Simulated assay, not measured.
Amino acid sequence: MNVNTSTDLHIKIGQLLLFGWQGETPEAARAVNSHATALVDDLSVGGVILMGRNVGNVHETRAMLASLQERAAARGLPPLFVATDQEGGRVSRFVPPHYTQFPVAKTIGDTADFDNARQVARAIAEELKAVGLNWDFAPVLDVNNNERNPVIGDRSYGDDPELVAKMGVAAVRGFQDDAGLLACGKHFPGHGDTEVDSHLALPTIAIDRASLDKIELVPFRAAIAAGLAGIMTSHILFTELDAELPATLSPAILTGLLRGDLGYQGLIITDCLEMKGVAAKWGSAEASVLALEAGADILLCCHTLETQVAIRDAVIEAVRNGRITEARIEESLARIAAAKQRWISPCPIISKIDLAGHRALAERITAAAAGE
């Protein structure tokens, strides 16, 4: 379908956006406030992300997300992706007492039992779906092969590529096959061998393609073969693949390597475009245009409305002036529509979270990792 009017273009570009919202008070952040309504009403976003600030108890969160979905439907928009980062361990947005604190990935890896990864993923997915989420930005598929890494560390299943691959595949099956929730492997093509946090600056990795094939790409290849629905990019400069642009902005990495060499046909989403890894040099708005040119489908921006508006406006202008073709936009819209049709259901699959069972699972895995 071609873009015929300004309204059409705004809605189409909106579907490429997955944004978060803030509130002036903790209570406001846990409600459909003016920032949240602007995402739907003004930006026509295709999805939202919940940070810890947005999460209340089960009833509050379920009602809030139902209201947002109803708002999108009233405007004639497709159902929203509703995503979060619920990895377990220190990257958990849904926490006790209303939700389960699951062990960090390394603890699961230390058990050497792949079914543990699958059971945890299924349990996480059940808790998320119970309140209206449909996408988890997990599992972490990074191989933790640099002990000085400041951002991955125990978020990885371990330092063995084959172990990470098998654990990652098990988690994908738990999320998607068992619970019907989209999974998202991250951070492509691998954030494990860095000594810089991409939230704060742009890391550089100077390893060749052969080394990537032996280590970083092993878990991603396995997860893709298992049907992984989404992959998140990394704000890292892989100098042997692209000397100028980090992975999120690199056609050589997203289109050439991920789409071409690895044959990936699912959704590609950027890491947050407010992170200094890309924002410091390119700015979030220009980085968004470059990411779409590189092959990304969805632009993630977690925090600031002013930046979110700038991203939307920059992409619209890029389409209007011919820098980004309509055909390029349509490719991503088709992937997004197919994913929503397959994965988003109108109602959560369960009405009550099995906290006792999930806590027992978490405790059992923690004990097994400790050799108890």
Rank of each mutant, 00 (worst) to 15 (best):
T7C: 12
H10Y: 15
G14L: 07
Q15D: 03
Q22N: 15
Q22W: 05
E27G: 10
E27H: 12
H35M: 12
D42C: 05
L43H: 09
L43R: 08
G46L: 08
I49F: 03
H59L: 10
H59R: 11
T61Y: 00
A66N: 14
A66K: 14
A72G: 10
G76F: 09
A83V: 01
E87V: 01
E87Q: 03
G88Q: 03
G89Y: 02
S92A: 05
R93S: 00
T100G: 12
T111F: 00
A112D: 11
F114T: 14
D115K: 14
V120L: 08
V120I: 08
A121N: 00
A123M: 03
A123R: 02
I124S: 12
V131T: 08
V140W: 07
L141I: 06
N145E: 11
R148N: 11
N149K: 10
V151M: 11
E162D: 15
F175R: 00
D177I: 04
D178E: 09
G180C: 07
G180P: 06
C184Y: 00
P189S: 02
H191T: 04
D193N: 14
T194M: 08
E195V: 13
L200E: 13
A201K: 14
I207L: 12
R209E: 15
F220V: 03
R221K: 15
R221E: 14
I231W: 02
I231P: 02
I236P: 05
F238G: 03
F238L: 07
E240R: 13
P251Q: 05
A252R: 04
L254A: 01
T255C: 06
L257A: 00
R259T: 10
I269V: 13
D271T: 08
C272I: 02
L273D: 00
L273P: 00
M275I: 09
K276E: 14
K276C: 13
W282S: 05
A291S: 07
E293W: 08
I298F: 06
C301W: 04
C302Y: 03
V309S: 11
A310S: 15
E317M: 14
R320A: 14
G322I: 01
I324S: 10
R328L: 12
I329G: 06
A337W: 07
A338Y: 08
K340H: 09
R342P: 09
I349M: 13
L361A: 11
T366S: 10
A368D: 10
A369H: 11
